[in-house]
Simulated scan of single mutants.
Amino acid sequence: MTERNGRDSRGNRGGEGDHGPDGENAARSGVPGVARPTVHLAVYDTLADWEPGHATAELARNGYRVRTVGPDIRPVTTLGGMRVVPDIAVAELRPEDSALLILPGADTWETGELAPFAATARRFLASGVPVAAICGAVPGLAREGLLDDRDHTAAAPFVLTATGYGGGDRYREADAVTDRDLITAGPTDPEAFAREILRRLAVLPPEVLDAWFRLYADSDASAYPVVAAAAEARQHRAA
C-alpha cells in the first residue's frame, strides 16, 4: 500500500521534504498591535471548491486575512456553482504583500489560460514567499518549470509526465510534499494540503496540528480534545 492510499496510517505521517523555517509569517488573532498577515487564494472558473477549504478556514481562524485573486476582477464560478468576486486581479498581486499563495485545481488549468498564475508562482518563489498547489495547479507549475528541481507529488506521475517537464526523478508518492517554499498535493488529499500549509506558516503547534490532521483526515475521535482545547484557548486570546 502506498502512502497516498494508506488511510489507516496517515495520521502519524508528515509530508515529505524540507518544511522550511517556522513562524516567519505567523501571527495569532487577538494579539494587540499585530497586523494580520494576508494569504492569497487564487480563484477562477471551475475551481475545485473542496481543495482549499480546510486551509483557508484554519488560517482565518488563526489570525490570517484571506484575499481572493482572479484572472481579473470579474466574478468566477466554481465547480460547485458558487459565484466568487475576486478581491484583486492576478496582475496586481505582489509577493511582498503576501504570506502565501494558494493555487487550487480547476479544469481551466488544462487549457493554459491560467498560465499567469504559474508565472506569479515563479515570482513568489523567487522572492522567498511560499506557494501551495493542489490538483490541476500542480501540472500547471510543472509546465512553468517549477518542479524540475524540487521534490513534489501530484495525482499520479503520468499526469506530470504528460506536461513534458524535467522533474520526474523528484516525484514522491505521498499525500503532500513540501520542498523549500513549494507545497504540492494531489486532488484527494485536501487535509494533507492544509496540514503542510499550516505547518509551513507555523499556524498551529506541532501537537495540535498532528491532532487536527488525525481528526479531519482519519476521523480519529481521540484527537478531538486536543483540537477543542486549542480552539478554546484561541477564543480566550481573542476575547
Rank of each mutant, 00 (worst) to 15 (best):
Ile197Asn: 05
Phe213Thr: 13
Ala185Glu: 04
His19Met: 09
Gln235Cys: 04
Gly105Leu: 04
Asp181Ile: 09
Asp18Tyr: 07
Gly136Tyr: 04
Gly81Gln: 07
Glu110Gly: 06
Thr178Ile: 13
Ser222His: 12
Pro52Ile: 02
Pro71Val: 11
Gly145Leu: 13
Asp87His: 10
Val31Glu: 15
Val69Tyr: 01
Ala106Val: 00
Ile183Leu: 06
Glu207Val: 09
Arg65Thr: 14
Gly105Glu: 05
Pro95Gln: 10
Pro95His: 09
Ala35Gln: 10
Asn62Cys: 03
Arg28Cys: 00
His152Ala: 11
Pro190Arg: 04
Ala230Leu: 03
Ile197Val: 15
Phe193Ile: 09
Val159Ile: 15
Tyr44Gly: 01
Arg172Asp: 11
Arg4Ser: 11
Gly105Ala: 06
Pro21Leu: 08
Leu198Met: 11
Pro139Ser: 08
Thr188Lys: 11
Val34Pro: 00
Arg143Leu: 10
Val90Asp: 01
Asp18Arg: 08
Thr120Ile: 04
Gly140Ile: 11
Met1Ala: 14
Ala162Gly: 07
Asp148Gln: 07
Arg13Asp: 03
Thr178Glu: 08
Thr78Arg: 02
Gly167Gln: 04
Ala155Glu: 05
Ser127His: 10
Thr111Lys: 00
Asp49Met: 08
Phe124Trp: 04
Leu146Arg: 12
Glu92Pro: 00
Ala230Thr: 01
Thr120Arg: 15
Gly166Leu: 13
Phe124Ile: 11
Gly80Ile: 10
Leu209Gln: 01
Glu16Ala: 15
Thr2Ala: 05
Ala194Ser: 12
Val84Lys: 01
Gly63Val: 08
Val76Asn: 08
Leu198Tyr: 06
Thr78Trp: 00
Asp179Tyr: 00
Ala119His: 04
Val227Thr: 07
Gly17Arg: 14
Asp218Val: 02
Pro104Arg: 10
Met1Asp: 03
Gly17Ser: 09
Ser29Phe: 10
Ser29Thr: 12
Arg199Val: 00
Val39Pro: 01
Ala223Gln: 07
Ala185His: 06
Val226Met: 11
Val84Cys: 00
Ala55Tyr: 07
Ala42Thr: 01
Trp109Ala: 05
Pro21Phe: 02
Phe158Tyr: 13
Arg36Val: 05
Arg170Tyr: 10
Val43Ser: 03
Gly33Ala: 09
Val39Asn: 03
Ile88Pro: 01
Pro157Phe: 03
Ala233Gly: 15
Arg195Asn: 00
Glu207Arg: 12
Leu204Gly: 03
Pro32Lys: 04
Arg150Ile: 00
Asp151Gln: 14
Asp18Asn: 14
Val43His: 03
Ser9Phe: 08
Glu51Lys: 06
Gln235Ser: 13
Ala126Pro: 06
Pro187Glu: 10
Pro187Met: 13
Trp109Gly: 01
His54Glu: 06
Phe117Cys: 00
